[in-house]
Design a protein around this nucleic acid. Structure first.
Lengths: 129, 129
DNA sequence: ATATGTACCGTTCGAGGTAATGGTACATCT
DNA sequence: AGATGTACCATTACCTCGAACGGTACATAT
């Protein structure tokens, strides 16, 4: 398989990586159990910072597309094919969209909704990126 | 009644105005039916831009705390006392808070939620401030 | 003519967030 | 010793957004 990263693309680099790996899994170019290159290795090949690749791997593991086994390397998850098709962002987007519409119907202004959103994000415990 | 606006206060000026007028209504200093100063007049008195006062009036009218009758002036709404106590922002805040928590439980990252929020705000028709 | 609320164009400033980068360090296993 | 994933510190640049401001214009009614 081959991965192409476009630095000029407005889409974040780590997002491009995630998408391409998921696509490779769906196309069958990456089969469950296959070992993936290490973070540092892939960062070298694609001329990316290791943090960027690590971020992509972190997301992919959360989505159960890959499995990281510490010093033993990273592998394609057994259920990778199914999990690659799941679009968490779409779910989040629809959920939030509904609430926004509800708030607007209630008479709230966009700026009020934005402020409330910012407050709500801060009031609850923080999370990693 | 008297209104004091603090420019150094991090709270937006139009928000300070809204709060103080609502408080005056609740305290009984502003009674239903009372005519309020015009936007330009109040802007002069408080040394604010007329847009700032207009924005505050716009919000107050949406909340049915005041009634604007065009060239005839602006008056305190008959149900102003009750409506001043209603806190729309609190409702919006709790609604959004619930959704954020749900999204986080679903495994979404804060940054993903923020991006989804931004997208959701843009995908749907725009509104005034 | 004057005042009213309203609406549009624009700009400036600051805060906050994301993305990406760098460096360093750790415990773990081969 | 070397590689692994992971974690912390930091900075930089870019962008978006809110807030406030200025100017101008409009239809309406007094």
């Amino acid at each position: 398989m081959e991965i192409l990263i476009d630095i000029d693309d407005p889409i974040p680099l780590f997002t491009q990586l995630i998408s391409q790996i998921k696509e490779a899994v769906i196309k069958g170019e990456l089969k469950p159990g296959t070992q993936l290159p290490s973070i540092r290795q892939l960062a070298n090949d694609l001329e990316l910072n290791s943090k960027t690749v690590a971020k992509a791997y972190r997301h992919l593991e959360r989505d159960s597309v890959i499995q990281t086994r510490g010093y033993r390397g990273t592998f394609v998850h057994p259920d990778a094919v199914a999990n690659s098709a799941v679009d968490l962002n779409a779910l989040v987007l629809s959920k939030i969209g509904e609430v926004i519409e509800a708030c607007r119907d209630a008479g709230a202004t966009d700026s009020e909704i934005r402020i409330a959103f910012g407050d709500a994000m801060n009031q609850r415990p923080l999370r990693r990126n």
